[in-house]
Design a protein around this nucleic acid. Structure first.
Lengths: 355, 355
DNA sequence: AGCGTCAACGTAAAGGTTTTCAGAGCCGGA
DNA sequence: TCCGGCTCTGAAAACCTTTACGTTGACGCT
């Protein structure tokens, strides 16, 4: 009775069964609750497991069960607020169902992305979520087609968050924000404040998320009766540094504009800094809007008017939709809504510069 | 020859072996590289594996190998920039060695923390890293002692990042920043700028990280010959909202102060906003410093002088130290250095209010 | 030639759990 | 009394890989 746990190594179900005076089959049934067991027996087994500090071996379980409750989320980098929020959503939704969540950071490297997907196949993940816009070139299309088929043959599901499925035929689920609608709405917001010269700062041709925002931006201009040449897109890419550099450049130019639509909030942060450096004021001289509404956007100077993309909800939705009805999910395309958050970075155009 | 992959389910090593005309043992040796195999044979096996799109079953491998290359990092929330950076460091260091990294978010709930640690035991993680300051009460001490022994008996290592080991005897490794030194340094920075009335905003009694900062703050004051009553600590806790609230309150008070030492950058963000709301200027009227140097600190208005705690390096160090020499690691206590980042939020005290 | 050594590789066990199959005991109905 | 059906339980197979052990044959040395 006193020799609990004297042997080295983990306690196995055999020891639990032995102590409870049942077979391993019965112990397994009592512990996993997979099959009914009389209350008295069940209690004995549970008691024994607790006494021995039994910990089930997830590998053995997964080995026989063929797969495991594990979701993987792959992002460019965990420290980006947007990706972090998506990852948190995935983690939360996974945790709610008792699933494990692993994260992979690629740093934007396709090679690491492939390695990670491969690793997830080995690990038997049942859900792989690839997050973040990309440039959709041939290499990308081929890569995703490969993932989709490889994971499909492993019985896993593939979700693309904010990136396109190259072919409607491949078994992947797409969940993303309606970037076009969001961009259209916030451009309309600037237009209704009186702005006519609006620069889109942060284009990245080939990146479908940004392309969609540009499309929405152009659509809003057109809807307000402006000619196509009123659109002015600066393809500086994303990031605070890029925004700062491009804005500094723009301020030196002779272009007529009174408002800036930054491709995302980080670009907006860089732009705001560049504007402040140049001695101009926001929104007195220039109005600025961003995209994504990162947590610190309300602490920008001034607090940033932006488009709220509920990133955590995106992560949650990805898991929820993928797991809801597997059959119907593959190949589907879900668009999540966004809305404008009005703060202090938009005002009327300065009288002297209004077009 | 043409009937590749006709059967359902995963391709096993048996099929690879069969196709290559060798036994599973040889196939395993060729694939894992664990044991030398003649180049010709090896090539045949690899070829067969590639043809069949063979994916090793990580569970079976872990089952026989006893454990697996997996690290777990547990944080309060992934979206906090500091935690995100630590998690990224852990992920990067793990990925460098071909390890898998899973993250758990507790939301500050001890119950979820316990469940997650239990899950990691089942999953056979070899390294569990608990990140983030906590209030060190009896419940915490008991909890950590339980983790340490439970993980130890599973052959896993426990690392505490920025939180204390309740007892030097328990088999846990502590890796954290030298908060006391960092706080002492930045307080000295304020003192040498001429400030004498310095408020510490964001105390959280029982939280060892913040307590250490308060200790460093008091030490610096004492070193400059100020009496103990010169210290003024506001225990408002962390977060932007708390900082905003406490700073607003403080500005209404009659207290004499010319500088604020915020417990972390988020508190500083809130404080800056409160000061701006009240019409005062930083650093003209009040100087402000923060702690942690989150990525956006340089975009605060004004850019924030703060203490840089290389969070990603903390994550990397945790993995590296824990894996370096296991025997020596347990029970050890590592302090990582920090340094001040000078930006624009500190100036001389205003002439009228200098003490 | 005889023998020892060693490389190459196959056989089989081990790792821990779940699940299928079947047996045992029991109850109720015919 | 007999039997169908039910509940409870145990033996054993299955999941897939690694590895300890053993066998075979080649090669070199005496």
């Amino acid at each position: 009775m006193g020799n609990d746990r004297v042997s080295k190594g983990r306690v196995t179900i055999r020891e639990v069964a032995e102590r409870a005076g049942v077979s391993t089959a019965t112990a397994s049934r009592a512990l996993s609750g997979n099959h009914p067991v009389p209350p008295a027996t069940r209690a004995r087994v549970l008691r024994a497991a607790r006494d021995l500090d039994y910990v089930a071996n997830a590998h053995a379980r997964a080995l026989v069960g063929g797969g495991r409750k594990m979701a993987a989320v792959v992002v460019r980098q965990v420290t980006s607020p947007f990706y972090a929020q998506v990852a948190e959503g995935v983690e939360a939704e996974a945790a709610d169902r008792g699933w494990l969540c692993v994260v992979g950071a690629t740093g934007g490297d396709a090679q690491r992305e492939m390695e990670f997907v491969q690793l997830m196949r080995e690990e038997g993940a049942r859900l792989v979520i690839l997050v973040g816009g990309v440039v959709e070139d041939d290499a990308y299309r081929e890569r995703v087609a490969h993932y989709a088929h490889a994971l499909d043959s492993s019985g896993a599901r593939l979700v693309l968050c904010g990136r396109p499925a190259p072919d409607p035929e491949i078994p992947a689920l797409v969940v993303e924000f309606d970037n076009e609608a969001g961009a259209r709405a916030i451009t309309a917001h600037l237009l209704s404040a009186g702005h006519r010269g609006i620069v889109f700062l942060g284009g990245l041709p080939g990146n479908t998320a940004l392309d969609a925002r540009v499309t929405g931006y152009r659509a809003a201009l057109a809807e307000h009766g402006l000619p196509p040449e009123a659109a002015h897109v600066v393809d500086c890419g994303l990031g605070r540094a890029a925004g700062h550099r491009a804005m500094t450049e723009l301020l030196k130019s002779t272009g007529e504009f009174t408002a800036v639509f930054a491709g995302d909030d980080m670009v907006a942060a860089g732009a705001l800094r560049a504007i402040a450096d140049s001695g101009l004021r926001v929104p007195g001289d220039i109005s600025v809007v961003g995209y994504n509404d990162i947590p610190l956007a309300e602490d920008f100077n001034p607090p940033l008017t932006t488009v709220r993309t509920p990133a955590e909800e995106l992560g949650r939705a990805a898991v929820r939709i993928a797991l809801r009805d597997p059959e119907h999910a593959a190949g589907a395309h879900h668009l999540l809504g966004t809305h404008i958050v009005v703060r202090d970075s938009v005002g009327a155009p300065p009288p002297g510069r209004a077009l």
